[in-house]
Design a protein around this nucleic acid. Structure first.
Lengths: 197, 197
DNA sequence: ACCTGAACACCGTTCAAGT
DNA sequence: ACCTGAACACCGTTCAAGT
């Protein structure tokens, strides 16, 4: 009960960010209050302003963190799968799992009203999608993408999977079709399977 | 200058909704203030509450209106194109044009935190996508979708095109690739073109 | 350098009261 | 039935002042 405590012990920026991530997941970006955040972390309402000049800066920082996490998941999903075709499906499933379990975060990550350094978010997004791009580039060198630009395929893959995630999150697709749809998306970009019949 | 005016002359609900649509387009859903809206329309802040029990109800109503407009555009785009393949590309292009010119509205339409009667939004979405579904059902009966479920194709089509729109709106794809990408998406769901070479 | 505390203008929501 | 006006608890943002 040491009263009149000094300032803040550790890293205030990260403490605010961590608490904000919880608040975002539970209640969404619209309900994210800087004052409540500061109070939760044990600091006055104006203190976080040293690290986040305004509310949007905090939201952007959360989006950047989200893309870091997504990139890690995607890289792991690709590495864990044995062959090219399985990698595409694994990446799709990992993306859908992340996007549906962190719906509020993903909505923020792809929001189009950003703050002064919104470029950092776009840069984070590109970094997160790097494993996807590398995967399709490998597919090209292995001759599995006949006559197709791997960048274009990667772009459509990301768009499709993000679109599916959005339709699931806003209630237009049943969530239990997740793995089913991941395979569908993979099949669409890859073309028909080799010879299942 | 007739002072001390009576209540409100016309349809307050629609007046608020119309003004809100402008505010949404210009500044986004986060900046939409019921008090400012009421003031703009010439009524006290509590008056709109008769028609929109809370802020979210207004946002949901805007989303429903958005889906009505989108459905009209999609139906027109399909009807204006001569053949099946052109219809798919035309619908894709129309969707992308709508989604990029009304970025804030589309973001709201696909938001996943909705109010008490969020089911009305989902219902509006399904109605808007009906022309797409009908288009692919026709494609099936004409034998142009060999061995594929038209509902599934329609779902992936909408997801992909909505995903592309999202990537454009958040700055991850150049907007000038719009028609190019529309053709790409159409090509992806339709398979390779008949015999262009 | 980092945080406090007061102040400003705004917000959504509620509700008794007016016409 | 429809709207007003006051009240409540909350916001983001600013800034002089403290340590």
């Amino acid at each position: 009960m040491t009263s009149h405590r000094p300032y803040h012990h550790g890293n205030l920026r990260q403490a605010v960010l961590d608490r904000a991530a919880v608040m975002l997941r539970d209640r969404g970006a619209a309900d994210l209050s800087l004052r409540e955040l500061a109070s939760d972390v044990g600091v006055t309402h104006a203190a976080p302003r040293r690290y986040f000049p305004d509310r949007q800066a905090l939201l952007d920082a959360l989006a950047v963190e989200g893309f870091v996490r997504l990139g890690t998941r995607l890289r792991a999903a690709v590495q864990a799968a044995p062959g090219y075709r399985e990698q595409v499906r694994s990446a799709a499933a990992a993306y859908l799992r992340f996007a549906t379990s962190e719906a509020n975060l993903v909505e923020l990550m792809f929001a189009h009203n950003r703050g002064a350094d919104g470029a950092a978010v776009t840069q984070g997004a590109n970094a997160a999608f790097a494993p996807i791009l590398e995967m399709f580039r490998r597919g090209e060198t292995e001759g599995l993408l006949p006559g197709r630009d791997p960048e274009r395929v990667g772009l459509l893959f990301v768009a499709t999977i993000q679109g599916v995630a959005g339709l699931i999150n806003c209630g237009m697709i049943d969530a239990d079709r997740l793995d089913d749809l991941a395979a569908d998306v993979a099949g669409q970009v890859l073309g028909p399977p080799p010879s299942p019949a």
